[in-house]
Nucleic acid binder design. Structure first.
Lengths: 193, 193
DNA sequence: GTGTTTTCTTGACATAGGTCAATGATTTCC
DNA sequence: GGAAATCATTGACCTATGTCAAGAAAACAC
């Protein structure tokens, strides 16, 4: 089950046999975490890169007033990490925390290096993943400058139709960069205009 | 001169001899462009990745009202491209345009592939470049949500102290996500508070 | 199941930043 | 070197969104 998910994911990026894929999985450790577990505290070095098998997480910064600003949500089939911190082993500014009970395939720096030297073809996959991530940020930055809160919310619903049923609404507000009150008003205006 | 700049840049990321570096440069073409030349139109596939030797460029999206939203400035020692479009040969949503007369080392897809298969160690450099880029976007997204326009402007001045002397102020406004009028007011309030 | 915490909604009011328009100041260009 | 274009400033007014406060509803915990 776990293996199939991962296999399917990897073969989206590169051509590889299912035996090889099993071997690749063996570099990872399957771990489970309860809801509301903090996996990375700002100030720490991020020691993992994780593929989400089950559950949902958030990555966020904390602003000067102590409020979360959510950078990304990660659900099934997504990767989560602070790549810059992970790669360069330098302290992160980011928090990573589970929103639901989670199962993830995790790998540390040393094992990732071993993995990449065993399967250099994975270099490409990781580069593409970072690129995909970059494009997401580009679009969000643009959206936050060029769109109204309502439009951003609609884009979000379109892109992540299943998330609103899974996570509290104030997290979506944080992701969109609006106050929870304002998002609530937006939603209620939409229903009865 | 050009060679030295490039050599210095590359050796920041990877260890390589200066002969090898010369050879690497030979995969690139040095090109010059006049101010206000559009190098990539939205809708086209981006056919280049370029290292800026001299001059300054902007990359931007156009919003629904026809206004530019500047994503990045690129000056000496920076790379400029729409990586996603370049890599996947799919149409870009981005515009790339010179702000000053420019000299750049440019490479196309085929040559980049040849380059990477000749010097696989460059894979790492390109991955790190993308990552660095990603971090920049992360920080800007956070800034655009968590900081006031004034704070964003100060961060900008700190990060790019030389740019305000080189480019028109309304471009900075666009980068910061504020109207030119508002940036002007901010600046003048600062001087005589 | 009842108490506690978390989340959502709604009202009243405040403000950062936008828009439009007019005027000057710079640059650009032949 | 002067006309034309581009850019910056300023005033008046407007609006999207934030903040604070309070209550309702839902979820969670024992």
């Amino acid at each position: 089950m776990t293996k199939e998910l991962f296999n399917k994911h990897i073969t989206k990026f590169i051509n590889i046999s299912s035996e090889e894929c099993e071997n690749i999985i063996s570099f990872f450790t399957l771990k489970k975490f309860a809801k509301k577990t903090i996996l990375l505290h700002a100030g720490e070095v991020c020691r993992f890169e994780a593929f989400v098998i089950k559950g949902c997480l958030k990555t966020y910064f904390i602003d000067k007033n102590g409020f979360e600003v959510i950078l990304t949500f990660a659900t099934e089939n997504w990767w989560v990490s602070d790549i810059a911190s992970f790669q360069q082993e330098k302290p992160s500014q980011m928090w990573i925390e589970t929103i639901e009970d989670c199962e993830m395939l995790m790998i540390n720096q040393a094992d990732k290096e071993r993995l990449l030297s065993t399967y250099p073809v994975l270099e490409k996959m990781f580069r593409l993943l970072v690129q995909r991530h970059l494009v997401t940020y580009q679009e969000r930055l643009f959206g936050n400058i060029a769109l109204t809160a309502k439009e951003r919310y609609e884009v979000f619903l379109h892109k992540y139709p299943a998330l609103p049923q899974r996570i509290p609404q104030h997290l979506i507000a944080s992701y969109l960069g609006v106050s929870p009150e304002f998002l609530s008003r937006l939603r209620n205006k939409k229903k009865n205009p």
